[in-house]
């Protein structure tokens, strides 16, 4: 049995009195492709945002790659993580955002090379080589010198994926990567994510409403409801024979809607 690369233990996230994650226990194995589904407000995006250190947890503990994410061991006891520790932990993760969040004042090439050059201190030429390979992978070689505003939403999101991959993360987080796209552009982004899932041993955590896609690429589906995992299993189990009434209702609503 391999050690999980991500391990949530009794993680609570609250905004004031509103509980978003309710003592969540959640494991992901290295290389596993996990899709989180669930109604809005169920805490699924919050899981990703907490992993990316964009939001703090209220209590509980998370381990990523064998080390506590939001804590640090000092003199044998766990203390809240320092910025230096968070920085180290963040380098293990990459994130793709619903709204792409490309830097609008930088060319596609610079969007991808900015972090490798400035954070990883890669030589410019090497960063460009890496970016060119990634652009080829996402099918945007021709667009390297364009600015984000000159690209379609689908193209922008593919740049977003390339930008995150350029940092060579162990874990990729996809936060509703196709929710902001026009329907005809969803396919091109899903194709990129799909081939990434098929060809790499990257650990992937995906929040999406694209059920057919989730079924194709995932090793496991987790159905979130009110800050907890209500049901999880292989795509077969969840989509063809869900045990929980709540899962059935949700899938019925999503698949018919």
């Amino acid at each position: 049995m391999t050690e999980p690369i991500i391990k949530f233990e009794k993680v609570v996230k609250k905004y004031g009195s509103h509980v978003v994650l309710d003592e969540l226990d959640f494991d992901v194995k290295p290389g596993e492709k996990v899709t989180i589904i669930g109604p809005s407000g169920s805490g699924k995006s919050t899981v990703l945002r907490i992993l990316m250190t964009l939001e703090e947890i209220s209590s509980g503990i998370i381990h990523v790659d064998g080390e506590p994410l939001w804590h640090e061991e000092k003199n044998g006891s766990l203390k809240p993580a320092s910025e230096a520790h968070l920085k180290k932990m963040r380098s293990k993760l990459g994130m793709v955002f619903q709204q792409f969040n490309l830097f609008p004042h930088m060319s596609v090439m610079r969007n991808i090379t900015e972090a490798p050059v400035n954070v990883l201190k890669l030589p410019k030429a090497e960063a460009r080589d890496r970016a060119e390979q990634l652009l080829k992978m996402v099918g945007l070689t021709e667009h390297a010198h364009k600015f984000p505003s000159q690209l379609s939403g689908g193209q922008q999101q593919r740049v977003g994926i390339a930008r995150a991959l350029a940092m060579r993360p162990k874990i990729m987080l996809f936060d509703e990567p196709t929710s902001a796209l026009d329907p005809e552009l969803v396919g091109e982004v899903l194709n990129v994510i799909g081939s990434l899932a098929a060809e790499h041993d990257l650990t992937m955590l995906l929040v999406t409403h694209e059920m057919r896609f989730a079924r194709e690429v995932s090793d496991r589906i987790c159905f979130f409801d009110r800050g907890r995992i209500r049901e999880q299993g292989t795509p077969e189990e969840i989509f063809t024979n869900p045990k929980e009434e709540r899962t059935r209702e949700f899938l019925k609503a999503v698949l018919e809607g």
Partner: peptide, 27 residues
């Protein structure tokens, strides 16, 4: 400047200074 910009910068591990001078201020 949209919040997503600083979140993307944080996800890419930019230092706060680099985020300010290269991401936030130019926008």
């Amino acid at each position: 400047v949209p919040k997503g910009q600083s979140e993307a910068a944080r996800a890419l591990d930019f230092s706060p200074l680099h985020t300010f001078t290269h991401i936030i201020l130019p926008q």
